[in-house]
C-alpha cells in the first residue's frame, strides 16, 4: 500500500513527514538495553528479507494482489523501535531507487508502514500475549500481524480522505476490506517465518516478546 505522489495534499503529507521525522529521531536516539551486538547483522537480514518478500505479490480475490509487509515480524525479532528503523530503511530504498511510493508521500508511507503498522501490531500482540500468559502465542502473533496490516490500511484511507482525494466513507471500508484479506496472508507468512526461527534460533525470539 505504498502511496504514490499525488494522492495526498500538502497539509497531509507535510504533517506526516514531520511526525515521522520526530518518531525516527526518537528511534535513533533511544538507548535500548535490549539491543545486542548480534542485533546489528540481524537488522540487515530483517531488512533484506522484508524487501525481498515485499516484491512477492500473491493473488487475492478479484484480480487483486497483496504482499507481505513485515512490520510484526521485525518487531518480534528486534523490538518495535528497531523494527521502525528497519521498515524505514526498506521504504526509503523503495521510494528512491525503485519509484515504489512517492517522494513527497515518503513520510506518510513511513508513518503507515513503519510506525502505525509496527505499533498497532506490537500493541495487539503484547496485549494478547499478556492476556493468554503465553510469551510466544501463535494466536497473538497472527492477530498482531493481521492488525498491523489492517490498521495501517485504515490510516492510509484516513489520509486519502483528509486530502480530499476520495470520500472517507468510501475509502475506509474499501481499504479495510481488501487489506483484511491481505492481512490473512501477512499472518500466515509471519507465523511460518517465526516457526522456522523458533526451530533454528529460538534465542532470537521469546526474550524480546516479553522484554528481558
Amino acid at each position: 500500500m505504498h502511496i504514490p505522489d499525488g494522492f495526498l495534499d500538502a497539509k497531509t503529507w507535510g504533517s506526516l513527514a514531520l511526525t515521522s521525522t520526530v518518531v525516527l529521531g526518537r528511534a535513533l536516539s533511544k538507548k535500548d538495553k535490549r539491543f545486542l551486538e548480534e542485533d546489528v547483522p540481524l537488522m540487515g537480514v530483517a531488512a533484506a528479507f522484508i524487501f525481498a518478500a515485499q516484491m512477492l505479490n500473491f493473488p487475492i480475490a478479484g484480480g487483486t494482489s497483496g504482499h507481505f509487509m513485515g512490520a510484526m515480524l521485525a518487531c518480534l525479532v528486534l523490538g518495535p523501535w528497531a523494527a521502525t528503523l528497519v521498515m524505514t530503511t526498506v521504504l526509503v530504498v523503495q521510494a528512491l531507487v525503485f519509484q515504489d511510493g512517492g517522494l513527497l508521500a515518503l513520510g506518510a508511507n513511513i508513518f503507515n508502514m513503519g510506525i502505525v503498522a509496527v505499533w498497532a501490531g506490537w500493541g495487539v500482540y503484547r496485549l494478547l500475549a499478556h492476556l493468554t500468559g503465553k510469551p510466544f502465542s501463535r494466536w497473538a502473533v497472527m492477530a498482531g500481524s493481521w492488525s498491523s496490516v489492517v490498521v495501517s490500511a485504515a490510516a492510509a484511507a484516513l489520509e486519502l480522505g483528509l486530502s480530499g482525494t476520495v470520500r472517507l466513507s468510501l475509502a475506509l471500508p474499501a481499504m479495510i476490506g481488501v487489506h483484511a484479506l491481505i492481512g490473512v496472508g501477512e499472518a500466515l507468512i509471519t507465523l511460518a517465518v517465526l516457526e522456522f526461527i523458533a526451530k533454528v534460533r529460538p534465542d532470537l525470539l521469546l526474550v524480546r516478546g516479553e522484554g528481558r
Binding site: 500500500m1 505479490n57 500473491f58 494482489s65 497483496g66 504482499h67 490500511a153 468510501l170
Partner: peptide, 23 residues
Amino acid sequence: ASQDPDGLERVAEDLGFSGYAWG
C-alpha cells in the same frame, strides 16, 4: 510474483482516483 494491482491500487481504480498519481 502476481502482476495484479495491489490493495491500494485496486481501491484507487475502483473509487476512481488512480489518475491522481504522478511521477
